[in-house]
């Protein structure tokens, strides 16, 4: 249960830490299950008052393997790397993951990914992807559209 100790430590720092626009919410499902509410302030595409909810679930293999991360809720942010079912195409959630990253760094990456977004659209293969997408985005064999995320 080594991963639990790491999560405990991450939890301590997450709850102490305050990053503008990010709100970490623990769930009753356990220490490995988190919600993160993200507000995007300085991008006209997104309503600054609306918080997008991110779900983060760290599996038993965490931190050797990345956690499962996806957007949930009624509104999924429009972004060329975010599918309408909430799945996110971001290299640090798949091949680019290393254990030196953390839940905090993932949340920050996704926040900055949305903040830097200039295209108000879904990925080009959105319809095709969501029609056969697995429940866990980690089981998708991603082909990264480009690297400048």
């Amino acid at each position: 249960m080594a991963y639990k100790r790491r999560l405990l430590k991450e939890m301590q720092t997450l709850l102490d830490l305050s990053i503008p626009g990010l709100k970490f919410i623990p769930t009753e499902d356990g220490i490995n299950h988190w919600y993160v509410d993200i507000n995007i302030v300085d991008n006209p595409i997104y309503d600054p008052a609306h918080a997008f909810r991110l779900e983060i679930v760290a599996g038993d293999e965490y931190p050797i393997e990345p956690p499962m991360v996806k957007f949930i809720g009624q509104e999924i942010p429009l972004h060329p790397h975010v599918y309408s079912n909430g799945h996110i195409c971001l290299n640090i959630l798949g091949d680019g993951w290393t254990p030196a990253q953390s839940i905090r760094s993932i949340a920050l990456s996704i926040q900055s990914m949305l903040q830097g977004n200039t295209k108000n659209e879904r990925p080009p293969d959105d319809e095709r992807y969501i029609s056969h997408a697995p429940q866990n985005p980690r089981s998708s064999g991603w082909v990264y559209h480009d690297d400048n995320v």
């Binding site: 080594a2 991963y3 100790r5 790491r6 405990l8 430590k9 991450e10 301590q12 931190p63 050797i64 254990p99 030196a100």
Partner: peptide, 16 residues
Amino acid sequence: PLYEIPEYLIDPVKYG
């Protein structure tokens, strides 16, 4: 307790 261990003794993978 975790917070008493100095940073340089902590493993960056599992934080122990």
